[in-house]
């Protein structure tokens, strides 16, 4: 693990207390909690629209939308319930790249921030980190102490090797069977492991959010010339001459790769959020994730 001392500044942590995780599925955990849970009904928190069906209460019809679109839509709301949330961090070697911030530092900061949001919303966070060294799981517990433990846990993460995403999920579910939400932060180069993880989460009715982290050099690589590329995890070597033509081909392949991931996530009912480690954790936590519907200001 690189230097992560002061993973998140006190100012950021204080600001994150005003943000909450957004759950899009009804929670199956403890009911009647103080904080939000996902159950559409009489809550005042608006979530989404759906088309009117016979039997719906007329008072839920959005007449303003009808005036604009001439079609009937019904507003849906969330109930506020407590949730057990798993934050799964991919700590494989491939996360050790990126400038000015490596993906691992960035991912640790984002996960730390989301843990803060979860604790602020009275959710019960569970942290799992998977790398070549194995899987480490933490149930941080109470709100303030839990946040400190979570950050220390992330700072002490052992990075490198290959991750075991679905194995880590299994281990976390064994530790905390009540997990209903999963936030996976990874570069997703292990496609098969991702599929197994999504399949397992769907089977256990875990609402999954995939935070797909890539470095700027991965989104738009540069450096024309003759290169011998070495895979950081497998050590496999590939000789390639990077030309504008090759870089264009990479861009096409990345687009296809992202589209396939998107399709995979949609297939298993998960949502995917693309993140660029170059933008920094602060921008991600306070701009990107709220815009993507992962968090919201209270």
């Amino acid at each position: 693990m690189p230097e992560t001392a002061g993973l998140l500044s006190p100012e950021i942590l204080a600001r994150l207390e005003g943000y909450r995780l957004i759950h899009h599925k009804p929670v199956g955990g403890a009911t009647g909690g103080l904080w939000r849970a996902r159950q559409k009904g009489g809550s005042s928190e608006f979530v989404d629209y759906r088309e009117y069906a016979p039997g719906d209460e007329p008072r839920r019809v959005d007449w303003m939308a009808y005036a604009r679109l001439r079609r009937l839509y019904v507003r849906e709301y969330l109930d506020e319930r407590r949730d057990c949330v798993l934050f799964l961090l991919d700590a494989s070697a491939s996360m050790g790249f990126g400038t000015p911030l490596t993906k691992e530092v960035y991912a640790a900061q984002v996960i730390g921030g989301l843990v803060a949001c979860a604790l602020a919303g009275q959710d019960q966070p569970v942290l799992a980190v998977t790398s070549g060294a194995g899987t480490a799981i933490l149930r941080p517990g109470g709100r303030r102490a839990g946040l400190a433990r979570s950050l220390r846990f992330l700072e002490a993460t052992s990075w490198g090797g290959r991750a075991d995403l679905d194995g880590a999920l299994e281990a976390a579910l064994r530790t905390a069977p009540s997990i209903r939400s999963l936030y996976l932060c990874s570069d997703l180069y292990e496609r098969e492991a991702l599929t197994r993880l999504l399949r397992l989460a769907a089977a256990r009715e875990v609402e999954t959010t995939v935070l797909h982290v890539l470095a700027p050099e991965e989104w738009v690589p540069g450096g024309e010339g003759d290169w011998a590329l070495t895979d950081s995890e497998t050590g496999e070597r590939l000789e390639l001459t990077l030309t504008p033509f090759a870089l264009a081909a990479y861009a096409r392949r990345l687009q296809e790769f992202v589209a396939a991931l998107e399709e995979e996530c949609r297939r298993w009912g998960a949502r995917r959020v693309a993140l660029n480690s170059g933008e920094g954790a602060q921008v991600t936590l306070f701009r990107t994730l709220p815009r993507a519907g992962v968090t919201r200001p209270q």
Binding site: Y189, W227, S232, E233, T234, E239, L240
Partner: peptide
């Protein structure tokens, strides 16, 4: 074939596909 410089990357997953495309 030119002499190449070493360059570690997170993954060669996408580059392999590029190489296939370029018949490199």
């Amino acid at each position: 074939r030119p002499r190449r410089r070493e360059r570690p990357v997170p993954s060669i997953l996408l580059w392999q596909q590029v190489a296939q495309e370029l018949e490199a």
